[in-house]
Design a protein around this nucleic acid. Structure first.
Lengths: 187, 187
DNA sequence: GAGATAATGTTAGCCACTAACATTCAACCG
DNA sequence: CGGTTGAATGTTAGTGGCTAACATTATCTC
């Protein structure tokens, strides 16, 4: 189905990202047009949109990572959905090395500062949220409770992301732990 | 500061809303242009945007209601922020009569079905969220915890709103109660 | 080196939205 | 009642996000 991209395409894509984040950091998201980014990257405007279906995705697109939902199945089913989701994510995160990608931080910082992107960020977490809902439901949670718990946990996580991007919290891991503490305290 | 709108302006605005929701319900949000709505309401496209700064706001604009945050101050400060927010909102809601406005339900149903509007909904809850954060912080909560708690509670509330609009839960009050139960169970 | 295929370019156009300026409407004043 | 004023609306022109259709250029294979 999904054919692997050619080296040339990957180079073009990376140039668009590099020049795009650069320009946006300097002049702001709204003040930077897709055409301008394309010009800076040495391609046509059309090519920009062939790489990123929307301008938002230049900043927010990330490969879908369902791994966050994977720890949920291990949690005891007696726990309420919110606790299961929070603890599952925490344990999934701990099995992973801190992905110290500075580019992710650039992206999140831009998103945090751009009102137009905050909504888009919400949309871009949709896949992760659905994965969490699916796991909770598979383990017996009512559909409504699963949706409410998943959306609440994701919202807190995004808050943590923003705090990390702003330098308010040092490491991504610490931001996540603290956000999860707030929605499902140690109590 | 804010001058009261003239009767004529109010009539035009209502006609835009009536024809707008009507057309959007029939053909979908993305398939209905602002120009089309304006034409149906018998005004120019420019007038549409003078009443609604963005097309999204035709569906989502609602007077800012800070009342939801008002019950938070009454909660015991020993409780963690998430509990304070959830209980405060619950008690604020209970002091109010169920506002059985069918138009609100139309709007929410459209928002629930339109991916482009889900993000906008998130933005439109920003005022309420800020009010909640302000109250939590005023009562001594750390800023980060307040933001995380407020965003989580709002996210769950929006989930409840959608469920009510879809008919999955009968009354708005029940939807809110249940959403709050999920994020801050009786435990 | 010829062909096939992916990647890009060009052009034209729709829609959301804005700025600038002209026009109509409604209330108020004499 | 006519005239004046300010709000509401209309008109026109333009920008930026985004798409469709078709032409062109790279790159890879044989």
């Amino acid at each position: 189905m999904t054919t692997t991209p050619t080296p040339r395409r990957l180079r073009t894509r990376q140039r668009l990202i590099d020049h795009g984040l650069d320009l946006i950091e300097r002049q702001g998201y709204d003040q930077t047009s897709a055409a301008e980014i394309a010009r800076a990257a040495g391609v046509s405007e059309m090519t920009f949109f062939r790489h990123f279906a929307t301008k938002e995705l230049l900043v927010l697109e990330d490969p879908y990572d369902p791994f966050l939902a994977e720890g949920i199945g291990d949690q005891p089913r007696e726990l309420p959905p919110l606790q299961r989701a929070a603890r599952g994510i925490r344990s999934a995160w701990r099995t992973l090395p801190e992905p110290e990608q500075p580019e992710i931080r650039r992206r999140v910082r831009i998103a945090a500062r751009t009102p137009a992107l905050r909504g888009a960020m919400w949309r871009s977490t949709g896949n992760t949220e659905q994965a969490i809902v699916a796991r909770l439901v598979a383990d017996g949670a009512p559909a409504f409770d699963a949706r409410a718990a998943a959306s609440a946990v994701i919202a807190a996580l995004v808050t943590g992301l923003y705090a990390w991007a702003d330098g308010e919290i040092d490491t991504l891991g610490a931001a996540i732990e603290r956000a999860l503490d707030v929605v499902a305290g140690e109590a």
